[in-house]
Design a protein around this nucleic acid. Structure first.
Length: 677
DNA sequence: GTTAGGG
DNA sequence: CCCTAAC
């Protein structure tokens, strides 16, 4: 017997809490991060962090080959040779892989700047990143050559820009070149000016650290962390050297190039970064993993003295993929311009400024030779649909947690895209120019809004053959509001901070039993062993609902990849109830039919009933040999024919009142044909 | 949000 | 069962 429990899992519409901008220095930032982690970390991010920790805690003794395999698989796409990076980058629009846990876990990256956050997912199905999108200032040229798609891409890239700006490990990014509306890949540069106080590892430093080879498989813990670095094997940049210093390492170098990209010509490449030796990678990756352990929290100084032994395998196995091209430094220049743009809070709606921050945009205007207006974007909330999770009673708490992690991952792992809405109406035609779409200085800007839509590759994710399934289901029973998880910001933060507290809500009234799987109910021992073995999942995830857009503006569209509802043939008794109801109410009142006869059948919508009636009529008209499925008693089919004939005639009369046949059926409540017979 | 109809 | 037009 499998007890199925519905977990009202209410990320619905929660607001991302405000996080004040912290000091820019590394130390200050760390403080901010920690504070945020303690006090007001975005619950989702906490979930993500927690998820990571969960897996570590629960699976840590097992850096198994399976996991290796998973990881490898998960990162295949990104785990490319350096010379291939361009191609890869060009093919990925999503936020970049910044390293992730390897076990299907969410890797959270927590940003602490800006007031709002969004969660963006990259294409890699196994990893995800959440980031903060405070205010992305996006320059959009008002020009016929800039179309809606460009705007969307600019927004996406704007968020990535924000990612990057907030330090961390930006692998690379693509930006729309607003000059011509054609996206072109740009690379971020390590930035000296991001360095924090002396002695602290800065963002730029980390970036450089990331800029080492990560193609190697899992690093063995036997690698010597003390192995000296060799200049040949590492990127040469000030920040990188600084990192090494922070690590207690040193390296000879001969150029003293500052990496402030804005002062460098775009075509001045520095020494190409080459993979360090394994030991170096080990150390560096250890460092990186540490850094990532709690999202954006900066590592403490003493972290650098630690060895990998302290790192949980899941972190150590994370692979970092990065790109950097020193040959394109224009990005930084652009970013600097953006950074000077005064930031004012928006409330989730989009505001515009005519030639906002014109002084700082002068160069841009000149460069673009076109009128430019600035879009300020704030996104305050996103939405994760409710989940239905069926768990055997014997399942472990840990497996429950993992299931939720997987479920959320499944929803969000597919990346996101941006939709543009004008006056609440979706702009679907990407080829339209902004002017054609009605976005211009003259009007429309105030009514411009954006949606974040999961790309969710909602394919069936069958993790094991166990017949316990986890479903994403729409909240379809009436018990939703009371059991819905409260807005995350109102939750006990301590609960989120506790790695054992995944934000689940096992509501009392939300328990129900849909079906049982008598044959395959795993024995307790079986369940335990299956679920507690890393790499072996006792649960399958069967996404079955529309993934609602990450709602900036309410937006509903069935995800292309969302699977269709499971087919549930009507039973004879259902057919009987339907026939009776239609007999009483007539055709064309499917909502009433639903309410009267199928109110408790949550899986039957009035459209379903209408469709079933349609097929019933068809079935009744064909020969019994042609019929399929469970046979419907002829008596019912006869009634169907009679009812259909009656009501079609009745409706015909309604539609053609000019030629009313004898009123044998008084309209208001027309007698059912059964009474006429 | 419902209904009707094609797929 | 899905999708969409029409209301």
């Amino acid at each position: 017997m499998v007890l199925q429990r519905r977990l009202d899992y209410g990320f619905n519409g929660y607001q991302v809490p405000f996080l004040p901008r912290g000091p820019r220095s590394a130390r200050g930032k760390r403080h901010t991060c920690e504070k945020a982690a303690e006090d007001q970390m975005c619950p989702f991010e906490l979930l993500a962090s927690v998820a990571g920790k969960l897996l570590v805690e629960e699976n840590s003794p097992e850096p198994s080959n399976e996991r290796k395999g998973d990881s490898k698989h998960a990162f295949t796409k990104y785990n490319v040779k350096e010379e291939e990076l361009d191609e890869v980058k060009a093919s990925n629009v999503g936020v970049y892989d910044q390293g992730s846990y390897n076990d299907g876990t969410l890797a959270s990256e927590v940003g602490f700047r800006g007031q709002t956050r969004i969660v963006t997912m990259k294409e890699c199905s196994q990893a995800s990143s959440s980031a903060s999108l405070g205010h992305s200032s996006i320059i959009i040229k008002r020009d016929p050559s800039v179309d809606v798609a460009s705007v969307e891409e600019s927004l996406v890239n704007g968020s990535k820009d924000e990612f990057e700006r907030q330090s961390t490990v930006t692998a690379g990014s693509r930006h729309s070149k607003v000059e011509d509306g054609i996206p072109s890949p740009l690379r971020f540069e390590c930035r000296q000016n991001k360095m924090g106080a002396h002695g602290n590892v800065s963002d730029a430093c980390l970036e450089d650290l990331m800029n080492v080879d990560t193609k190697a498989p899992l690093l063995s813990s036997e690698s010597s962390a003390d192995e000296p670095l060799h200049g040949d094997g590492i990127p040469h940049s000030t920040s990188f050297l600084k990192c090494l210093n922070d690590l207690g390492l040193s390296v000879d170098r001969d150029d003293d190039e500052k990496s402030s990209g804005c002062t460098q010509p775009c075509n001045t490449p520095s020494k190409p970064a080459r993979p360090p030796r394994t030991g170096d990678r080990h150390k560096l990756q250890s460092f990186s993993s540490k850094f990532w352990k709690f999202g954006r929290t900066e590592p403490k100084d003493e972290d650098f003295c630690n060895t990998d032994e302290e790192l949980k395998p899941v972190f150590r196995s994370r692979k970092m993929v990065y790109t950097r091209q020193r040959t394109q430094r224009c990005t930084f220049k652009r970013r600097k311009l953006f950074e000077r743009v005064p930031v004012s809070m928006s409330d989730g709606t989009l505001t515009t400024e005519e030639n906002g921050a014109s002084s700082s945009l002068t160069g841009l205007k000149t460069a673009y030779e076109s009128e430019v207006f600035q879009v300020k974007l704030g996104i305050k909330s996103f939405k994760v649909p409710e989940l239905l999770i069926k768990m055997p009673e014997t399942a472990t708490v840990g497996s429950l947690k993992r299931t939720v992690v997987e479920a959320v991952t499944a929803i969000l792992c597919g990346g996101f895209r941006v939709g543009v809405q004008l006056q609440g109406k979706k702009l679907r035609d990407d080829s339209k120019s902004l002017t054609q779409a009605g976005i211009s200085h003259g009007g429309g800007l105030d009514n411009l809004s954006f949606t974040l839509e999961p790309k969710a590759p909602q394919t069936l994710k069958q993790l094991t053959a166990n017949k316990v399934t986890t479903c994403f289901l729409p909240a379809c029973d009436g018990s939703d509001p009371p059991t819905r998880f409260p807005a995350a910001r109102s939750l006990d933060d301590a609960a989120f901070a506790d790695s054992c507290t995944v934000p689940l809500h096992l509501g009392k009234s939300s328990l129900y039993c849909l079906e049982s799987d008598h044959d395959s109910a795993p024995s307790p021992a079986h369940a335990m062993s299956a679920e507690d073995t890393p790499g072996s999942r006792a649960l399958a995830i069967v996404p079955a609902m529309e993934i609602e857009a990450l709602a900036v503006v309410p937006y509903h569209r069935r995800s292309e990849t969302a699977p269709r509802r499971i087919r549930r043939p009507f039973s004879v008794s259902e057919v009987e109830a339907l026939v009776q109801a239609v007999e009483d109410l007539g055709t064309g009142r499917w909502r009433d039919v639903k309410l009267c006869a199928f109110e408790n059948a949550k899986h039957r919508t009035y459209v379903d009933l209408k469709d079933k009636w349609k097929t019933l009529v068809h079935t009744a008209k064909i020969s019994p040999q042609q019929r399929r499925g469970e046979p419907v008693p002829q008596e019912l089919l006869d009634r169907v024919l009679a009812i259909n004939a009656f009501w079609s005639q009745h409706q015909a009369k309604l539609h053609h009142p000019k030629h009313p046949p004898p009123p044998e059926a008084p309209p208001p409540p027309p007698p059912p044909p059964s009474l006429l017979a």
